[in-house]
Simulated scan of single mutants.
Amino acid sequence: MSLLALPSARDEAWRWSDLSGLPAIADAKPTGQPRSVDDLWIDTPGPRLLFVDGAYDASRSNPGPVQIGPADANAGRHALGKLAGSTGWTLTLGRDCATEGPVQIVHVATGGANHLAADIRLDEDAQASIVESFVGEGWVNRAASLRLARSARLMVARRFLHESGFQSHADTAEIGQAASLTIASLVAGEADSRLDGHLTITGIEAFAEAGGALLGRKKQRHDAAFVVRHAAAHGQSRQLWRAVADEQAVTSASARVEVTRDAQKTDGEQSLRGLLMARTAAVNLKPELEIFADDVKCGHGATVGELDRNSLFYLASRGIPPVEARAILTHAFVADALARIGEDAVREAFEATANSWLGMIA
């Protein structure tokens, strides 16, 4: 592992990520200690899969239509995603098919490094929802390939909750005519993280959305870098990221929209906002637009600030303790990043996780 050429801060796309500790983590051995995951399952019908240190635990899973085995993550050019290899899980839905409730996947790590690929393919008019939760310690590296045919719908929601180590995930997506893909991520653990995505709209009138909340404290580093490429006309995309940094944490979000010459009538929007909870913390935001079509509607906004003092004073005047007041305002700041999660039970579970990080009673 020590011979692996990892990106460094000298690489523009990785300048806010710190991967220097990965070789040592990868050389460590997993303990294999069992862990209860009952608190991670959301009370909804549908398939449930459990992976422990990257290995499928059939005795505690109910895969439904999900297949375990060879998987093509289509991440060969990504520095970390290419390590996922070809072993993992696949979900293939035929025309007009849908999953019964969300596909829930829990990833547990007990140290060391583990890599896993995922391949999701939805045929015409198919619909699916996937919910993933990551817990444990060590380096968990995932790569996913998403292919949506005409009018397919896919919702992906992920919780990154590691106690220590590093979490990385790379998505590669192709979105066909009138198809819709939404990816929502919540980073609320104690480990560092790096999230990447390259979403390509290949069919007319397709929709792509990516975003989430990055919650950092202590000396954590969270980094999200997503690219949406419009390669067909009348497409829409949204990127919405909320970055919170407390103590000495660094949270960063980079969102890029690319519009090709053939992608006329594109509507692209970026909303990046950062919240500094302490003057010793840092938030980095980088919105980018690259437009070669002449009939488009694209906009972006990026702001970094602190909690509003007037709002804090108002809550204090109503008898709300300062810690709770800060949590209430921070919850309001990140709420819209989770609002796009479709299933009520899933959205409420994610909000409860965020509230727990904020010190609120869910």
Rank of each mutant, 00 (worst) to 15 (best):
A5E: 10
G165N: 01
D344C: 05
G359M: 08
E348P: 06
A157S: 15
A98M: 11
K29T: 13
R158K: 06
D223S: 07
S20C: 04
E343Y: 11
R238Q: 06
R238N: 06
R142G: 09
I183P: 00
S61L: 02
H300I: 01
P287R: 09
W41G: 08
T92D: 00
A278G: 05
S356G: 15
G235V: 10
R159F: 09
L307T: 09
R242F: 13
E209P: 02
A231F: 13
W89A: 15
T330P: 08
S271D: 13
P63G: 14
S254A: 13
I120Y: 07
D336C: 06
S164H: 01
G216C: 01
R35K: 03
A157D: 02
T31E: 15
E290Y: 02
A325P: 10
V106T: 11
T87K: 07
F166N: 03
A282R: 14
A332G: 14
A332C: 07
A84I: 00
A188Y: 01
G138A: 11
R121T: 11
G301M: 05
A188G: 04
P34F: 15
L80A: 03
R158F: 07
R60I: 08
A170T: 15
L80G: 02
S2D: 10
R147D: 11
L214R: 04
E132S: 14
E163H: 06
H115T: 08
T172N: 08
A362E: 04
A335H: 11
G136K: 02
G112A: 07
H169W: 05
G54V: 08
Q264G: 14
L148Q: 00
D308F: 10
Q33M: 11
A170S: 13
E163R: 02
T353I: 07
A170G: 02
P70S: 06
E174W: 05
D192R: 00
R326F: 02
A184I: 12
Q127Y: 07
S151I: 02
G81L: 08
G101P: 05
F160M: 13
S36F: 10
E100D: 15
